[in-house]
Nucleic acid binder design. Sequence first.
DNA 1: CTCATTCTGAAACATTTGTTTCAGAATTAA
DNA 2: TTAATTCTGAAACAAATGTTTCAGAATGAG
Lengths: 192, 192
Amino acid sequence: MARNVEFDEALAIQKAMEVFWKKGYNATSLRDLTDAMQINSSSLYNTIGDKQELFVRCVQHYTNIRKKDWDLRLASERSPLAVLTDYIHEAVNIIINGEDSCMAVKSAFEVATNDERVKQILAADDQRSNRFLYDLIQKAMDKGEIKNDEDPALLADYFNSTWTGWYESYILHKDPVKIKRMAAYFIKQLTK
Amino acid sequence: MARNVEFDEALAIQKAMEVFWKKGYNATSLRDLTDAMQINSSSLYNTIGDKQELFVRCVQHYTNIRKKDWDLRLASERSPLAVLTDYIHEAVNIIINGEDSCMAVKSAFEVATNDERVKQILAADDQRSNRFLYDLIQKAMDKGEIKNDEDPALLADYFNSTWTGWYESYILHKDPVKIKRMAAYFIKQLTK
DNA sequence: CTCATTCTGAAACATTTGTTTCAGAATTAA
DNA sequence: TTAATTCTGAAACAAATGTTTCAGAATGAG
């Protein structure tokens, strides 16, 4: 037959994702992308497609990574509450030390309103995040690690939406203490 | 001397703000703006300045409106808790019925990371929002309307960052019940 | 090796972008 | 009215945008 694709598509998607993550969809040009991916635009259009398609693939990639992380944590042998508090502390560290906000959050506000496919991917991702919290809360309640006088689904919903505001706060104020105090209050609410 | 500016600048800013609000900064073109403002680009550049400057003015305008609303509510004769719960219910209605998410939130994620002036304006706005909540919580505690076993500043921080996630949730799931249930839990936490 | 097929690189594409130019219309103070 | 000044409209600007084209290099099957 004929020759195969020369570049590593997975790596190229990873590189493109990093650019989209940092600059956002609309502020990223095709040149920015092909520079980072180290491929020619003709190769891009031959294999992946146009800018929108590439973005969809990048968001997919981003949410896949998150999914793997949640699955790994859920499979842990440790106590549900410990897994949950660890997760929260690591989330705080990512907010405080990360170079950019969560790509899912940024994309929800910039792109999801106009692109149905992106919205679907992010909605599914949010649902998994929700489910992750729900499972941990439920298990922690069963084990008596936290009080069970509240609907775990409601708590999962509520806590799941809480992170987003922490990102915004850190963008505006760059105050690590603020985030840490909110996280501490968050955990205290669960356990007390 | 010479002739005066023909167009109503305040109205033009309002119109520009609506476009930026809906489409975001980067997805809005100068043509989009001049069409909505009904002025020629030469007039725009002569009076207000370039696209960035116009955006700054629009964000300013947006946050000014919010400030007025908070001041009005704080001046109310009603009980602090009633003012607070009313505010929350109205916020929920805006999320559920509004055509777009909060412009301050959208701009924080899309622009504030790259534009120092926008960041400053939004940080100041966030501080006022915080202060608004703090004052109400403090007053409600003094009046014994809510329990006072928690630092009001922490509560204000925490609650202030909570809204943002509700917007994201509504973009992704368009589920009014979800938002209402979170708001109810929110109020319950305060009062119980 | 041959040859059909597929990929790549560089250039070109038409649009759209944000911004500027400038002649002429409009205005105001004298 | 005059004259100095400032605004407006239409057109033009270079640069950047997303996308396509195509000749030739690379590849794998026979």
